[in-house]
Write a protein that binds this DNA or RNA. Structure first.
Lengths: 249, 249
DNA sequence: CGACATTTTGCGTTTTTATGCAGGAATTTC
DNA sequence: GAAATTCCTGCATAAAAACGCAAAATGTCG
């Protein structure tokens, strides 16, 4: 088993069970615990898991259990949210993914707005639920503990039945050669399907994430309609994306 | 159980119940009280809880005020939850409705328990989500804002596809002539379906709600298997129900 | 292909961490 | 004020981590 494969296996286990034990992994993969520890160290350096005495925990662990710590670059996301809100009109059906940018969007919805939001993200549902005038449709299926979003075949089938006016995706990586990419297989499947189920696809991303890529592809740039970042629309960094025909906000 | 997990569990209990006892925690988690004390010490150093003689308090303790009657009813529900938990075994698939009694049940689940919980209730999902070992399946559909539960045809169809080991229903009215009744049409539809999709149906209700009825019927007494209240099983009030063949706990 | 550099891995050894236990001190409780 | 808890301190132990080193695997380049 290659090192890369082993680490991928470890990550999968972490995301699946929220925790792994070095001793168990060492037996499962048939390598020494030292090797496992070294793997865990490297992965923890990359921020993909949290190393603890005896094994490791999912990075979502802190968020799930601990009090809401300050969200990374929240102000930037609030700027993005404001721009995104301007696209929404009364009566629209809107698909959304999960992620902290989407949460910020949910908080920025004007109270008079009447619209229907469709999502599988539990944190997003909580925000939508507090809004006086919007209807919420929940995509059911198995809940992924790390991302707090429903994933799986049922979720995907249900999304396929929908044709929404807008789809807002919080994305983690975008660049001109690889398109939009992510690192969680299940979530990629869901996002892919969402893109196919909306008339207009809007991607939300803070500028730090543009010109980066990750292992799994969600779609090409040509599949999205609008890209929103916290930067001004005429910012130099965004030229390459404008040139591909995407509207940039 | 990893140290970090244990501390997360303690924190969750503190935030949930506003206070914890070292002795109780030690039994629940199956470690020595010394270990619990050390955990409480570390967590109090981080300001995440306030250590006191015998246990710990939530840091937000002074802000929270529960009216005596509310605490009262909550304690009843905790008694019910404890009885209900005893029915659950590792590996079970369990359907649950919403309601505060079900929430109390969710909070009372022992941390080692591995099971799959299926529900359309968002507050319940939030509780299940915080549990380290249980899988959550969400029933999707339109979210009813008043009850924070999904209702509608899709939800009902999805429930029909399931055959769970247990179904826990929080109920609002039960009496010997009308059976189990409620006052929300949509929720009644969902509960009806849940009853048909489980091998064993368990109704949870505080004693104030027994011998009351509401306009819409959910099912007959004969359709349920077990009734749990906060009263002792041999309580006089429960005789009529026992006589119909229901197991009373 | 073969020699050399680099990376990866496993194995002792030492160090650190986590936990339980014993006994005396401190505290609550009645 | 006496009994019962709970707490603290130090210690023992077992498990896990860190460290250094050498063997093995892998990669590189003429």
């Amino acid at each position: 088993m290659l090192k890369k494969e082993r680490q991928a296996y470890i990550l999968r286990q972490v995301n699946l069970h929220n925790r792994v034990l070095s001793s168990v992994l060492s037996q499962e993969i048939n390598v020494s615990e030292d090797t496992i520890r070294r793997d865990l160290y490297e992965l923890s350096q990359q921020g993909r898991l949290i190393k603890v005495h005896g094994g490791a925990l999912s990075p979502a662990f802190n968020q799930v259990y601990y009090s809401p710590t300050k969200i990374y670059s929240r102000e930037k996301k609030a700027v993005i949210a404001k721009k995104a809100v301007s696209l929404i009109e009364d009566g629209m059906f809107i698909l959304t993914s999960g992620g902290s940018t989407i949460l910020e969007l949910a908080r920025a919805l004007p109270p008079q707005l009447k619209a229907t939001f469709i999502t599988g993200s539990i944190p997003a549902v909580l925000e939508y639920m507090n809004h006086p005038n919007i209807d919420v449709i929940i995509i059911g299926d198995k809940l992924s503990k790390s991302s707090k979003i429903t994933t799986g075949g049922d979720a995907i089938n249900k999304i396929k039945e929908i044709k929404a006016d807008l789809c807002f995706l919080g994305i983690n990586s975008i660049d001109t050669t690889h398109g939009i990419t992510d690192n969680d297989w299940e979530i990629v499947q869901v996002k892919k399907t969402m893109i196919g189920s909306a008339q207009k696809v809007v991607c939300l991303s803070i500028s730090e994430k543009i010109n980066t890529f990750q292992p799994i592809k969600i779609c090409d740039l040509s599949d999205i309609d609008i890209l929103i970042t916290e930067l001004p629309a005429d910012s130099e960094q965004l030229f390459p994306y404008k040139n591909t025909g995407i509207a940039v906000m």
